[in-house]
Computed example of a mutant assay.
Amino acid sequence: MKVGFLTASLSRRGGGLLNAVSGLAQGLFTGAASVSVFGGRDAHSAADQLHWTGLDVNALEPAGPEFFGYLPLLNGMLRRAELDVLHTHGLWMYPSVAARRWSRSSGRPYLVSPHGMLDPWAVRNARWKKRLAGWAYEHAHLRGAACLHALCAAEAEAIRAYGLRNPVCVIPNGVDLPDRVADEEPPAWASAIPGGAQVLLYLGRLHPKKGLPVLLDGWQLARAEAQSGGWHLVIAGWDQGGHQAELAAQIERAGLQAQVHLVGPQFGAQKAASLERADAFVLPSFSEGLPMTVLEAWAHRLPVLMTPACNLAEGFAAGAALEMAPEPDSIAAALRRGFAMSDAERAAMGEQGRRLVADRFSWPRVAEQLLAVYRWVLGQGPQPDSVRLD
Score class of each variant (00 low, 15 high):
residue 4 G to K: 06
residue 7 T to L: 09
residue 11 S to Q: 06
residue 12 R to V: 12
residue 15 G to A: 10
residue 20 A to D: 14
residue 32 A to E: 15
residue 34 S to A: 15
residue 41 R to C: 07
residue 51 H to S: 07
residue 60 L to N: 09
residue 61 E to T: 12
residue 62 P to T: 04
residue 64 G to D: 06
residue 69 G to D: 05
residue 70 Y to T: 12
residue 74 L to D: 10
residue 77 M to R: 15
residue 79 R to F: 05
residue 79 R to K: 13
residue 84 D to S: 08
residue 85 V to E: 12
residue 86 L to M: 07
residue 105 S to N: 07
residue 107 G to L: 10
residue 113 S to F: 04
residue 119 D to W: 02
residue 123 V to L: 07
residue 129 K to T: 11
residue 132 L to D: 06
residue 135 W to I: 14
residue 135 W to K: 15
residue 142 L to F: 03
residue 149 H to R: 11
residue 150 A to Y: 02
residue 155 E to M: 01
residue 157 E to V: 15
residue 166 N to L: 08
residue 172 P to H: 02
residue 175 V to Y: 03
residue 176 D to T: 12
residue 177 L to V: 11
residue 183 D to I: 00
residue 183 D to M: 01
residue 187 P to L: 07
residue 192 A to V: 15
residue 195 G to M: 08
residue 205 R to Q: 11
residue 219 W to G: 00
residue 221 L to A: 09
residue 239 D to F: 10
residue 240 Q to Y: 09
residue 246 E to Y: 15
residue 252 E to P: 02
residue 257 Q to V: 00
residue 269 A to Q: 11
residue 280 A to K: 08
residue 290 L to V: 00
residue 292 M to E: 00
residue 292 M to A: 05
residue 294 V to C: 14
residue 294 V to M: 09
residue 301 R to A: 14
residue 304 V to T: 13
residue 304 V to H: 08
residue 306 M to G: 08
residue 310 C to S: 01
residue 313 A to N: 11
residue 313 A to Q: 15
residue 314 E to M: 14
residue 315 G to R: 11
residue 316 F to G: 11
residue 318 A to H: 09
residue 318 A to P: 04
residue 320 A to N: 02
residue 320 A to Y: 03
residue 329 D to A: 15
residue 329 D to Y: 09
residue 332 A to H: 13
residue 333 A to F: 03
residue 342 S to D: 14
residue 345 E to L: 07
residue 355 R to H: 02
residue 356 L to H: 01
residue 362 S to Y: 12
residue 369 Q to D: 12
residue 371 L to S: 04
residue 374 Y to I: 05
residue 381 G to W: 12
residue 382 P to H: 08
residue 389 L to A: 00
